[in-house]
Nucleic acid binder design. Structure first.
Lengths: 160, 160
DNA sequence: ATCAATGAGGATCCGTCGGTAATCTAACGA
DNA sequence: TCGTTAGATTACCGACGGATCCTCATTGAT
């Protein structure tokens, strides 16, 4: 189990297709089409994210999904935690049940530190930071839906 | 999928119960009893390790399992590779199919480096190094089967 | 009130991994 | 040669993550 599951990857890509809070809702179907994430699976995923307070979904006419918080306030850790939970952080790297601080396995200290670095990283990267991320499906979606391009976003940011 | 699967952990613990090449064969059943690894499962695991040339198994009277190479020459990477293969090293951390050096995901470079550190570590730790590892079942096994204790092994090593 | 749009949710399928049990077969000793 | 002692092999089970299909429930427009 790598730190991020495939599903968390899905969540990340999907959320990059959503507008900031108050913006126009986006259809699950539309996101699925562009990203290649299976529709039904994405639907459940979105629901999960909604329960965790990361997105807001509304059904019926003109329904869709929007970010529940500014993208700059959503970290990778939020996504990881919402989808994969935190159990993996506590397991011994070798699956040894008796591996504790007192009776550590050979990789215990090493893994403890690596884990710490991973967490720091997950916390430091926000959804907004992902703009620099190259993802064909997502880029096409954003272009087709009038998102600012990475360059424009950078310029706006510089102005502010 | 963490770098090491539970089964690789099993392999590691089991192999710490085996004698150096030429030594007395140990029964799969015995190893299973001490370590708590399911017998049948361990049997298959041992067979896999034998095919990879890490252990030698002989059946029939006075049969059993022995290390095929000195424990100092068996690295964690050998075990990991034998059991889990190398596919996980190549996958994008977020499961993005299109993540390459040219179109990297946000975590690409970070993961690349982390992976490198993990590999260095897996290569640098040998089965012999594991002597310092605390594992109740394994320690009991070694004590009952006349292995040198960690302290004695250290002293021997210092003499040589 | 009704209808169409749209997310929610249940049932189910598939592949992998960990695990069990029964049986087959090689090796040795008497 | 025959029986015992091992590992080898096969079949199968259950859980879990990913994925699909189909139906239900809510919402807004008319």
């Amino acid at each position: 189990m790598l730190p991020l599951s495939q599903t968390t990857g899905y969540a990340l890509r999907a959320m990059r297709c959503l507008q900031e809070p108050g913006g126009q809702p986006v259809l699950v179907e539309s996101v699925a089409d562009y990203t290649g994430i299976p529709r039904s699976y994405l639907s459940k995923l979105v629901h999960k994210l909604a329960k965790k307070g990361l997105v807001t979904a509304r059904r019926g006419h003109h329904g869709g999904v929007v970010l529940a918080k500014p993208s700059a306030e959503i970290t990778l850790e939020d996504l990881s935690e919402a989808i994969d939970g935190v159990a993996w952080r506590k397991r011994c790297l070798m699956g040894l049940a008796g591996c504790t601080e007192e009776t550590p396995c050979v990789l215990h200290d090493y893994w403890k530190q690596t884990l710490q670095e991973i967490l720091v990283r997950l916390r430091s990267v926000t959804l907004a930071d992902m703009a620099r991320h190259q993802d064909p499906g997502v880029e096409r979606f954003r272009a087709d839906h009038g998102f600012l391009t990475t360059v424009e976003a950078e310029r706006d940011h510089a102005h502010a």
